[in-house]
Simulated assay, not measured.
Amino acid sequence: MGPIDHVHGFGACESRNPSQCLTGHGRARYHQSVRSIGALLGKPACSNASTSAGGKLAGPGGCSTMEQKNMLNLYFHATPNSMKVAVLLEELELPFDLSPVDIFKGEQHAPEFRAVNPNGKVPAMVDGDVTIFDSHAILLYLAEKHGKFLPSELKNKAVMLSWLQFVATGLSPFSGQAIHFLHYAPEDIAYAKNRYVKEAERHYSVLDHRLAQARYLAGDEYTIADMALWGWAASAGYVFGQKGLGDYPNVMRFMDEVTKRPAVQRALDIKAKHTFKAELDTETRRAMFPQNETVAA
Rank of each mutant, 00 (worst) to 15 (best):
S19M: 13
H25W: 11
H31F: 03
V34I: 13
K43S: 15
A49T: 02
S50G: 11
G54M: 08
A58T: 10
G61A: 11
N70S: 15
M71H: 09
K84H: 04
L89S: 02
L94Y: 03
F96D: 05
F96Y: 15
D97Y: 01
Q108S: 06
G120I: 05
P123L: 06
D127P: 03
G128D: 06
A137D: 02
L142Y: 03
G147R: 11
K148Y: 04
F149S: 04
L154P: 07
K155R: 14
M160Q: 06
A168R: 07
L171M: 10
G176L: 06
G176P: 09
G176W: 05
A178H: 08
I179N: 12
I189N: 14
Y196R: 07
K198V: 00
A200D: 08
H203C: 14
R215M: 06
L217S: 02
G219I: 01
G219Y: 02
M227L: 08
A228T: 10
W230P: 05
W232V: 10
A233Q: 13
S235L: 11
S235E: 11
Y238G: 06
Y238P: 00
G241K: 07
N250I: 01
V251I: 06
M252T: 15
E257C: 07
R261K: 14
L268C: 09
K271F: 10
A272E: 12
K277D: 11
R286K: 14
R286E: 12
F289M: 02
N292M: 14
T294G: 00
V295C: 06
